[in-house]
Write a protein that binds this DNA or RNA. Structure first.
Lengths: 199, 199
DNA sequence: TTTTATTGATTGATCAGTCAATCAAAATTA
DNA sequence: TAATTTTGATTGACTGATCAATCAATAAAA
């Protein structure tokens, strides 16, 4: 069966499988065997390409992050005014695929892992910074710099909080409700500064 | 050595130890041996009193939750006006001991565990509901019911989000900044309804 | 023939959970 | 009170299962 150039194919399949297994299982305590089985290869092959479980996991967060970044870049490009860009950033955070229970479970598992794995933590810090700075860039055009900083901080926290709370699956808040809650926060926080082309 | 009445003493010691070990390790993947060692007893004794690791872990969340509830009850009793009660609830969420890295790590680990353990999930749902309803009770005295619902949802999310973001330990926000961010949100959200004895 | 892909079989380590045995306080009996 | 029995507390040693990681072997391209 060995065709050449399998490496990238298998790597992708294994990362996808890892994401699925982690999402279903709701934890990083998943076995290489299970991931490999999902990817349709032997556990030994997973080790062959990734060296260790930890490395595969790290590639998996990296992938999760890349997806989100690509979506954010695309959404920001489509938006033009600062206010539109703000809404675009919020919308991406609550996209349907990001809101899928398995995706939420995977993010949560990686958050927990970040307490132990310095490398995982680094990736999540990048995510947190990016969300904050995406918000901040637009907010600075809509209000004074110091207020913008605070609002960005608050909005990022609210987004993450809505996301986390979703993981408990009790009284789940819809995508639209989550978006409008965040938008409302920004609107009322910005209401004190009617200088920019607010709303 | 066997004195009578050791059971409650050992149970408490083991739960305390579990909390410490989980907090330090930043994960629920800790061994019974490690927990028992911290508590100064043999692993066998931990099994003797708790039956299983899962059960010990569940008692541990329960304890974490009870602490928070007791603090909230005390703080609410000391506050009198709705606005004071609101601030009390917020303050308790960001108390120093709740903000300690180990405590945050433990909460996070349990959030992840909730994806797998129905019982753990139930406890966290109780926490989430309680936070929301504590906020809601006071907010209803300060604005119309439907707005109160939304603000409670938003504030609870912001609190959880600030908490989670703290776990990444990058650009950590101080206790005071977290509190004032949440207070500001409530104030500006409430600003539209100058009916109650707002602020 | 060399290189790449792939696996089955195996190893070594780690752990949760069990169990039989010990020890000493408390209760009971003489 | 002294002797004896019972009971709770405690552990060391063991077991069975699970898993990450390794490796030697095979098969098919190039």
């Amino acid at each position: 069966m060995p065709k050449l150039g399998m490496e990238p194919v298998r790597r992708k399949a294994l990362v996808d499988a890892a994401l699925r297994v982690i999402g279903d299982h709701g934890s990083l305590s998943v076995t290489m065997s299970e991931i490999a089985r999902q990817a349709g290869v032997s556990p030994a092959l997973a080790h062959h390409y990734f060296g260790s479980k930890e490395q595969l996991l790290i590639e998996t967060v990296r992938f999760l992050l890349k997806q989100l970044r690509d979506d954010a870049v695309a959404a920001l490009k489509a938006a033009h005014t600062p206010r539109e860009k703000l809404s675009a950033v919020i919308r991406v955070s609550f996209q349907a695929d990001q809101f899928a229970p398995q995706t939420i479970a995977a993010w949560l598992a990686f958050y927990a892992e970040a307490q132990r794995s310095e490398e995982t933590r680094r990736f999540l810090v990048i995510y947190a910074r990016r969300l904050r700075s995406n918000l901040l860039a637009s907010l600075k055009a809509l209000g004074p710099a110091d207020a913008a900083e605070r609002i960005a901080e608050g909005a990022a926290a609210m987004i993450d909080g809505l996301y986390i709370r979703q993981s408990l699956k009790s009284a789940p808040i819809s995508i639209e409700a989550s978006i409008s809650l965040t938008e409302d926060y920004i609107n009322s926080a910005l209401a004190a500064f009617p200088k920019g082309q607010n709303q």
